[in-house]
């Protein structure tokens, strides 16, 4: 302490700057430490991942974002991509631990990750709370039943039940004729469906809307989760904490 001026211990950044200015005339080296520095560093690191469009984050429901996975990644096995996603995942986990919302990631997706990718953890209440319009559509789908007319769901089916990238649809890069063609293909493919397939379609749309087009086993997702879980030597990992609100 004699040769260092400790500026802050978790005090607001503005105050840190104030103190730094006051001490600038001193010959002592200036050190900023504490929770404020840690939080600023976490936010700064996270922002770097946001600054590269469509590289790590992909647009999803209601202005939220999910992981920008690519089907090519498992073929490439790029170690730098795996490292980037792992560090990104660790940062997201650390932000949550520190009570900082990793906006704009979808809170429902984070909930899914915190529950170790248990799809059943995405309850109707949770979905309704964050994505009410989408939740209402899913409810209407279920009410329609396996014998009902599903043509009113054509947009949703095109967006979430085929192989077209969600961001591609939302980016309105498809012409109306192309979109119509997609819709017709999807509807005809599941026109004759039983109750099980009808319910499965609902679950599939929820998965695609919240998690994305890839399974948790996808290399990008796996890399992200390898960091997000923050495993330690004593067996701790973030999803092993049971989250009750």
């Amino acid at each position: 302490m004699s040769d260092k001026l400790l500026i802050s211990f978790g005090i607001p950044n503005s105050l840190q700057k104030h103190n730094r200015t006051d001490s600038s005339s001193s010959s002592n080296p200036i050190i900023s430490v504490g929770d404020g520095v840690e939080r600023e560093m976490l936010c700064c690191a996270f922002a770097e991942y946001q600054s590269v469009p469509n590289c790590f984050l992909a647009a999803q429901l209601d202005g939220t974002y999910g992981l920008a996975t690519t089907p090519v990644a498992p073929l490439a096995a790029s170690s730098s991509r795996q490292k980037d996603f792992a560090v990104f995942g660790a940062l997201v986990g650390l932000l949550i631990i520190n009570g900082i919302a990793p906006t704009p990631l979808d809170p429902v997706l984070l909930h899914y990750f915190l529950h170790d990718c248990d799809f059943n953890s995405i309850t109707p209440g949770l979905l309704s709370e964050w994505h009410h319009q989408f939740y209402s559509m899913i409810q209407q789908w279920r009410d329609t039943g396996s014998n009902g007319d599903i043509s009113p769901f054509s947009f949703w089916l095109a967006a979430y039940a085929d192989n077209t990238e969600v961001s591609y649809i939302f980016g309105l890069d498809l012409s109306s004729a192309e979109l119509e063609l997609h819709n017709c293909c999807q509807i005809s493919a599941i026109q004759n469906r039983d109750d099980e397939l009808h319910v499965a379609c609902a679950a599939f749309m929820v998965y695609r809307a919240v998690v994305g087009s890839e399974a948790p086993a996808h290399s990008d997702m796996r890399s992200f989760l390898s960091g997000f879980r923050l495993p330690t030597r004593n067996g701790f990992s973030l999803p092993k904490v049971s989250w009750h609100y």
């Binding site: 900023s32 504490g34 520095v37 840690e38 390898s226 495993p231």
Partner: peptide, 22 residues
């Protein structure tokens, strides 16, 4: 973080005795 992710050991990262200095 990259080192911890590679070794799958975040024990030091989650240490209560952590200091960030600049």
């Amino acid at each position: 973080l990259a080192e911890a992710a590679k070794s799958q050991d975040f024990t030091q990262i989650l240490s209560p005795r952590h200091h960030f200095e600049m």
